[in-house]
Design a protein around this nucleic acid. Structure first.
Lengths: 213, 213
DNA sequence: GTGTGTGAACCCTTTCACAGCC
DNA sequence: GGCTGTGAAAGGGTTCACACAC
């Protein structure tokens, strides 16, 4: 309900806000207090007008003739994205990719807290894995742990064949969003958000770029 | 040089070709010989007209009133993308994420062969890591191994601070493309292709979607 | 009849150019 | 003077609708 007052925000704008947030964090760490859209353009490689337009979808954060105050803008972007607080996540599939994500410090430092991993491999259940010793549970515990930790987002790193079955369980547990690393289109029955991270297509795109010139 | 005869192909079309390839592989495995754009639309969730338009950028692969012959179309897409052969890759950064990619069977099965990993951690150098026992070398060996294996694509999974330094070395070794998992914009000096895989932005986008309704 | 191939229409996003404000 | 905010223009990509081929 919160942002429906902002109509028609391009998907790409959201992605760029996330990038601005990262850059502003770095500028803030370096003690820089004010930044212009021209400077942000240099750092990000994005068009300066685009940066200004992205920001004005959500308000007027800049000062004419001056620029943007770094921490003020950063804090506002965090609020807009909804990342001005911790998010509890779970991960389904404790294979290699799952373990890599569990150990990925950049998520932790951005407020993403993976509270549990799920797998059906009996040799994994009951152990703690990854850099932050995340406990591994069987999928029968899914509903309970989602409720206890108010988990809204699940990361799916199972093999493709298992993905749909897991999706049904996630829907039953009232998870609201799934970040899907399995190379299959998911067909959610409920109003659940799905996003796709597809590594093979990234490699294929790179091969095309290289091969086509 | 090969595809410059095809003018102005949307970036998104290339990504979809990769998806069509995956779906056609599955259809082929299931013994299905002919498929219509309507059926591909059901499977992929993409608009049928879009699918037809994507394909006609590169030729006329279909038969009116019939559809597309699965293996014929699949083989043509592979040729268009340049994935009708093996590609030797290297990975820089033998941390958790690097190891996960090294062990990711979907890349292997699509003809991506990671021949070596590079890291500066002395305790890793000389060992073999991941599901396919990939050898780990110091970065001083980069040029030699790239040349010996005709490597054109590198995967970058170092921490952000190291990324630029590594990029320079990759340029000197005449690598043509970099798939960058480090959360920094790279500024290549030579004509090297860079693509970005940014996990944190994916999570931020999902949080926005969930928070904004 | 059926399903592709495709110009035209539509829609969305980016970029320009400058008015407006510090 | 300098930099933001923003209508207007340009640019790209998607979808429609139907002619055309089997």
């Amino acid at each position: 309900m919160r942002h429906k007052k902002f109509p028609k925000i391009p998907e790409a704008t959201i992605k760029r806000l996330s990038i601005y947030n990262r850059i502003l964090n770095e500028l803030s760490r370096d003690g820089i207090e004010v930044v212009s859209s021209a400077r942000l353009s240099e750092i990000s490689g994005l068009n300066a007008a685009q940066i200004r337009k992205d920001l004005t979808y959500f308000g007027e954060f800049g000062v004419r003739g001056v620029g943007y105050f770094v921490t003020h803008l950063r804090d506002n972007i965090k609020k807009i994205l909804g990342i001005n607080r911790q998010w509890n996540l779970i991960i389904i599939g404790a294979g290699k990719l799952g373990q890599a994500i569990l150990s990925y410090g950049n998520l932790k430092s951005q407020g993403y807290n993976i509270v549990a991993a799920f797998d059906n491999d009996p040799s994994k259940i009951g152990t703690k894995i990854g850099a932050y010793n995340t406990p591994v549970y069987p999928l029968t515990k899914l509903k309970e742990i989602v409720r206890k930790n108010t988990v809204k987002i699940a990361i799916l790193t199972t093999p493709a064949v298992a993905a749909h079955e897991v999706l049904t369980m996630l829907e039953e547990a009232n998870v609201e969003g799934v970040i899907n690393f399995a190379p299959v289109k998911l067909n959610p029955s409920k109003n659940i958000k799905i996003s796709y991270v597809d590594l093979v297509t990234e490699f294929d795109k790179m091969v095309f770029k290289i091969s086509s010139e």
